[in-house]
Computed example of a mutant assay.
Amino acid sequence: MKIRMNQQWLWALPFSFAALVMTGCQERPAPQAELAATTKQEKAESIPLIQAKVVPVKLSKPEACEAEGCMQYDIQTVETNVKWIDDYFIDRVKKADPIAFSTAPNQKINTAEGANPNLSQSSTYIRFVSQQYDQATFAIQTYIYSAGAAHGMYHQEFVNFDLKNKKRLALQDILVKGAEQQVLDTLYDSNSLWLDQHSIERDKLKLSDNFYFGANGIVFVYPLYELASYAEGMTELTLPYVALTKLVKAEYLPSLPKYPSL
């Protein structure tokens, strides 16, 4: 009877050992820090690294004519690895110059016999400027020359995208709520020498909704004639990042060095 009991114990031993091995092989839950690191890595991988090249846009009417004369169009956009960005710019140029995409026939030009018809020009060029992690900046450059004018008019508009949320960033999107006046005052103080030289008083300066993220701060861009003469071109006023830490939402500020206090 004693020998039989020992045999039963010996038969049970392999099963107990197998259960122990299986328990040891079960996948243990990942530590919280490891899960957080994995989630952060997945989010980083979802942010595309912009690759862009400038390509011509195929137009139905590269030269559109009406009774008063003709307009020549030259439109070039960006082709990137992000479809919704490409679609955004194609939609912009189609809305800006619908005649260039129209299939309606050109009108007959009314000109005196032997006279050359009025010929105007319109150019639109879109290019990639820079990327800071989940923010990408593009520029739309336009030039219009109307026949008979002393000179053409040009403009440069900067378009900033939030790549994580797939949207264009307006100025109110990046500013802390209620910070507009403080931003304006700080912008004036940071550029007071140039503004004084151009006789621009504090209450005459407005925040521009045309801006981009520069190397040293947010750059506000103003159209021709608004703050300076045509010869001086479009005005750019820089607001240093170090002055924006409490005025711009943290997610839209670049990582800055910690400078020693003087």
Rank of each mutant, 00 (worst) to 15 (best):
R168L: 15
E45P: 00
E79H: 11
P62F: 11
L169Q: 03
D134V: 05
P62L: 14
V57K: 01
N118C: 06
I85F: 01
I90L: 09
P105M: 11
D74Y: 07
N160Q: 11
Q182A: 13
N160K: 06
K83V: 07
I140V: 15
T124W: 01
Q121C: 10
F128I: 01
V93S: 00
I174Q: 05
S146F: 02
A52R: 02
A179I: 03
L175R: 06
E66G: 10
A136K: 00
V78Q: 03
N165H: 13
V78G: 04
Y88P: 07
A170W: 00
L119I: 14
F101N: 00
T77Y: 03
V57Q: 05
P62C: 13
R127N: 13
L49K: 13
Y143M: 00
S130D: 15
S123L: 06
Q131C: 11
D173G: 01
R168K: 15
D87G: 09
D86Y: 03
V129M: 08
K166W: 12
A67D: 15
K177Y: 00
I140Y: 07
V57D: 02
V54E: 09
I50L: 09
T137C: 11
A179W: 03
Y145K: 05
I126T: 01
L119S: 11
V54S: 10
E68P: 04
N116H: 15
V54I: 15
S102H: 06
D162Y: 06
V82M: 05
A52M: 08
K166V: 08
I144V: 09
P105Y: 11
I90R: 00
V82A: 05
K95M: 02
A104V: 15
Y125C: 10
L119K: 13
D87R: 10
I144P: 00
S46E: 15
V57F: 02
C65Y: 01
L163M: 13
K108S: 11
P117T: 07
D162L: 02
Q72H: 12
P48N: 09
E79A: 12
K166F: 10
T77N: 02
G114E: 08
A96N: 00
T142I: 05
G152V: 00
G69V: 05
S123N: 10
C70F: 08
F158C: 11
L171W: 04
A150S: 09
A112G: 12
E63H: 10
A136R: 02
R92C: 01
E63A: 14
W84Y: 13
L169I: 07
E45W: 07
C65K: 02
I99M: 15
